[in-house]
Simulated assay, not measured.
Amino acid sequence: MKYLLAREDEEGEDQLWGRCAGVEGLFVEPAPPPREVLIFRGCAPSGPLREAVARPGEATDLLGDGWIAASDDTQAGWWELVDAVVLAHHPSAFDPSLLDVVVGAGVKGPSSGGFKATAPPRFELFTGGDASAGRCLAVDGLFASRPAPAKIPMELIGCEPTERLLAALRRPRRWERDGAELWALDRTGRVMARQDVGLDIHGARPSVLGGALVDITLADGGDNRPSPAVRPVWESW
């Protein structure tokens, strides 16, 4: 058995729910967010953004991944930018000494789940980690409603369920909003990685491995799963 399914009880103690021989859908490359166009209004660029708008004759310029921070006097929110590029820029209607910068990017967020400004917010762009790329007065398109990413299922193959998991299989709707952890074991049986998974069970059937084992489909295999590129490393461990 290469994996354990575990869950904390009410006292915070880890409880074993099952042992599994394999998992299909653990190694997943996340789908990139849809591309959007944002306009940074009244922007005072710095760092990479200032370099991008200073290059003459460039139609686009890559900024890469980054963040937008919005804050007022009571709260703050963060939006992630994926593979951002500068598409155009021109003097701002707010102030000719500032710029309006048109940026194309994939957008995720806000990090807090919602941001409702009680006062005009302040905006700051970060690229390359914590490096500031400038501040601006407004960001057109930032507060658009975005659908949640589709959940990617996971198959637990060849599972030996404990009584706790058997009870969940008998009453799956009771657990559909709860979560558990999938523990990956190394060749000595030690836990080498933990992955959060949802307990929304969409099906269970006799395992393709035979015997008394079962295969279980989880509707949500969790976020931040390892990339397929690291599968050979895990296999060697």
Rank of each mutant, 00 (worst) to 15 (best):
C20F: 02
C20L: 05
A21L: 05
G22L: 00
G22Q: 01
G22F: 03
V23H: 01
V23M: 02
V23G: 07
E24Y: 10
E24D: 12
L26E: 01
L26K: 07
F27Q: 06
F27K: 10
V28I: 14
V28S: 07
V28L: 10
E29H: 09
E29R: 13
E29M: 08
E29Y: 08
P30T: 10
P30A: 09
A31I: 04
A31V: 04
P32A: 09
P33T: 09
P33H: 06
P33E: 05
P34F: 00
P34M: 03
P34N: 02
P34G: 03
R35L: 11
E36T: 07
E36V: 05
E36A: 10
V37W: 03
V37P: 00
L38M: 04
I39V: 11
I39K: 05
I39T: 15
I39S: 05
G42T: 03
G42P: 14
G42A: 06
C43Y: 08
A44N: 14
A44E: 13
A44L: 15
A44H: 09
A44S: 11
P45N: 12
S46M: 12
G47C: 10
G47M: 09
G47N: 14
G47L: 11
P48K: 12
L49H: 06
L49R: 10
L49Y: 14
L49K: 14
R50Q: 14
R50L: 15
E51N: 15
E51H: 11
A52I: 13
A52L: 13
V53L: 14
V53K: 13
V53E: 12
V53N: 13
A54N: 12
A54R: 14
A54H: 13
R55P: 08
P56E: 14
P56V: 03
G57F: 05
G57W: 02
G57D: 01
A59D: 08
T60P: 07
L63E: 03
G64V: 02
G64S: 11
G64T: 04
D65S: 06
W67S: 08
A69L: 12
A69E: 09
A70L: 11
A70G: 08
S71D: 00
D72Q: 08
D72P: 01
D73L: 15
D73G: 09
Q75D: 14
Q75P: 06
A76N: 02
A76W: 11
G77H: 02
G77Q: 04
G77V: 01
W78C: 02
W78M: 01
W78G: 01
W78N: 00
W78A: 00
W78V: 01
W78L: 04
W79H: 05
W79D: 09
W79K: 07
E80W: 04
E80D: 10
E80N: 13
V82I: 13
V82M: 09
D83Q: 07
V85T: 14
V85Y: 11
A88R: 10
H89Y: 10
H90I: 00
P91M: 04
